[in-house]
Amino acid sequence: MNNNQLNIFKANFLIANNGKVKFPEKFYPKKINEIEFYTEGMRGGYKVRFFIEQNDIGKWYLDLFGSDDYCSWHKRINHNGKIINLENYKGEFGRTIYPNDPEKTEKENKEIQDHNNGVHKLLVDKGLEFNSENPEFEKENVVKLTDYEWK
């Protein structure tokens, strides 16, 4: 990957992370990079995992999954800097309850849960979420960027 491509990713990483997480000074190109930090008053902080790869036709892309106290996001930055929203969780911070229609409530909750199970599997398979069933994967493939600092 050349410097021009890296600069495209750097410029769009902050945007893709809702203006909250910038691209780290140091990262590991052949690994899943994990950034985690806390700002004053945050309980859960910010956490972002990302990797950079080439597709079948040799174009670079960056995939990331991030979260904070209020939301999560799963995005791709294409080789040209275009940011694409990818499959993400639904109903993370509340679901609709229909007091007069418990069957509808149950049906919607099941649909959301089925969707979220699929998203979780996808994110684990990509390495963007912690793989509790395979701790060796984490040891071998995930680099925690501990020197990361928000400025």
Rank of each mutant, 00 (worst) to 15 (best):
K82Q: 11
I83E: 05
N85S: 14
N85D: 15
N85T: 12
N85P: 08
N85M: 09
N85F: 10
L86W: 05
L86F: 11
L86P: 07
E87N: 12
N88G: 11
Y89K: 00
Y89L: 00
Y89E: 00
K90F: 06
K90Y: 12
G91T: 05
G91L: 03
G91I: 00
E92V: 06
E92S: 14
E92F: 15
E92C: 10
F93V: 03
F93S: 12
F93A: 13
F93R: 07
F93Y: 15
G94S: 05
G94Q: 01
G94L: 10
R95Q: 07
R95C: 02
T96M: 09
T96R: 12
I97W: 04
P99S: 00
P99Y: 06
P99F: 03
P99M: 00
N100S: 07
D101M: 02
D101S: 09
D101W: 12
P102G: 09
P102Y: 01
E103T: 03
E103S: 04
K104N: 00
K104P: 00
K104F: 07
K104Q: 04
T105L: 07
T105G: 09
T105S: 08
E106I: 14
E106F: 13
E106D: 11
E106N: 12
E106V: 06
E106K: 14
K107C: 00
E108D: 11
E108R: 01
E108H: 06
E108G: 04
E108M: 11
E108L: 10
N109A: 12
K110P: 06
E111N: 05
I112W: 06
I112R: 00
I112K: 02
Q113Y: 13
D114K: 05
D114Y: 02
H115K: 08
H115T: 07
H115W: 15
N116I: 02
N116F: 05
N117G: 14
N117L: 08
N117W: 01
G118N: 14
G118D: 11
G118I: 02
V119N: 03
H120P: 02
H120F: 09
H120K: 14
K121L: 06
K121A: 03
L122K: 15
L122I: 08
L122E: 11
L123W: 13
L123F: 08
L123A: 01
V124E: 05
V124W: 03
V124H: 02
D125G: 02
D125P: 00
K126P: 01
K126I: 10
G127S: 08
G127L: 11
L128G: 08
L128R: 06
L128W: 14
E129W: 15
F130S: 14
F130H: 14
N131E: 10
N131Y: 14
E133V: 01
E133A: 08
E133P: 02
E133D: 14
